[in-house]
Amino acid sequence: MKKIMIALIATCFTLLTLAGGVGIWGYKVVSDFATSTLNTSESQELVLKRGTSFSYLVSTLEQRDLITDGWKLKALVKLKPELAKIRSGFYEIHPGESVTQLLTKLIKGEEKVFSVTLIEGQSIKEWKQVLKALAHSQFDENVFDLVLQENGDESGLPEGKFYPDTYHYVAGDNIKSIVQQSYKKMLQELDAAWALRAEDLPLTSPYELLIMASIIEKETGKASERPWISAVFANRLNKGMRLQTDPTVIYGMGDSYKGNITRKALREHTPFNTYRINGLTPTPIAAPSGASLIAAAQPADVHYLYFVSKNDGSHVFSKTLTEHNRAVNKYQRNR
Score class of each variant (00 low, 15 high):
Thr270Ile: 07
Ile261Ser: 06
Gly259Ile: 01
Gly252Leu: 04
Pro288Val: 13
Pro299Trp: 08
Ala296Leu: 12
Ser292Phe: 08
Ala286Thr: 06
Asn278Glu: 14
Ala295Ile: 07
Arg276Phe: 05
Thr248Lys: 03
Leu266Gln: 12
Ser292Gln: 13
Pro288Gly: 12
Gln298Trp: 06
Ala300Val: 03
Glu268Leu: 13
Asn278Val: 07
Ser292Trp: 10
Val302Trp: 04
Ile294Trp: 03
Thr274Trp: 01
Gly259Cys: 11
Ala300Ser: 08
Arg263Thr: 00
Ala297Glu: 11
His269Asp: 15
Gly279Tyr: 14
Pro284Ile: 07
Ile261Arg: 07
Thr283Ala: 06
Val249Cys: 02
Thr281Asn: 04
Ala295Ser: 14
Gln298Asn: 14
Arg276Val: 09
Ala297Tyr: 11
Ala295Gln: 12
Pro282Glu: 08
Leu293Cys: 06
Ala286Met: 09
Pro271Met: 02
Thr270Cys: 11
Asn260Ala: 15
His269Pro: 00
Asn273His: 12
Gly254Met: 08
Asp301Thr: 14
Ile285Glu: 01
Ile261Phe: 13
Asn278Pro: 00
Arg263Ile: 02
Met253Lys: 08
Ala300Met: 02
Tyr257Cys: 05
Thr281Val: 01
Tyr304Ser: 09
Lys258Asn: 15
Pro271Val: 03
Asp255Leu: 11
Val249Asn: 00
Met253Ala: 14
Arg276Gln: 15
Ile250Met: 11
Asn278Gly: 10
Pro284Val: 05
Leu293Trp: 05
Thr283Gly: 00
Tyr275Lys: 07
Gly279Ser: 03
Pro284Asp: 05
Asn260Lys: 15
Thr248Glu: 09
Asn260Phe: 08
Ile277Lys: 04
Val302Tyr: 11
Ile294Tyr: 12
Gly252Gln: 02
Ser256Met: 07
Asn273Leu: 13
Asn273Pro: 07
Asn278Cys: 06
Lys264Trp: 03
Leu280Met: 12
Tyr257Glu: 07
Gln298Gly: 09
Met253Leu: 13
Tyr275Cys: 02
Ile294Val: 15
Ile294Met: 14
Ala287Gly: 02
Tyr257Thr: 03
Gly252Met: 00
Tyr257Gln: 00
Leu266Asp: 13
Ile250Thr: 04
His269Glu: 05
Asn273Tyr: 05
Pro271Asp: 01
Ala297Val: 11
Ala295Cys: 11
Lys258His: 15
Ala265Phe: 14
Ile277Pro: 01
Arg263Met: 03
Ser292His: 08
Asp301Met: 12
Ser256His: 13
Ala300Tyr: 03
Asn273Met: 09
Ser256Gln: 15
Gln298Asp: 04
Tyr304Leu: 05
Thr281Cys: 04
Gln298Cys: 09
Ala291Tyr: 13
Asn278Phe: 13
Gly252Pro: 02
Leu266Tyr: 13
Arg263Lys: 11
Gly259Val: 02
Ala295Met: 11
Pro299Asn: 12
Leu293Lys: 07
Ile285Asn: 04
Ala287Trp: 01
Asn278Leu: 15
Ala297Met: 10
Asn273Arg: 08
Arg263Trp: 06
Ala286Pro: 00
Thr262Gln: 06
Ser289Phe: 01
Tyr257Ser: 09
Pro299Val: 14
Ile294Gly: 02
Ala286Asp: 01
Tyr251Pro: 04
Asn273Thr: 12
Leu266Lys: 06
Pro271Cys: 05
Gly254Gln: 14
Leu280Gly: 08
Ile261Trp: 13
Val249Ser: 02
Phe272Gln: 07
Tyr251Gly: 09
Ile294Asn: 03
Gly279Ile: 10
Thr274Pro: 00
Ala291Ser: 14
His269Thr: 00
Leu293Asn: 06
Ala296Met: 08
Thr283Glu: 03
Thr248Met: 08
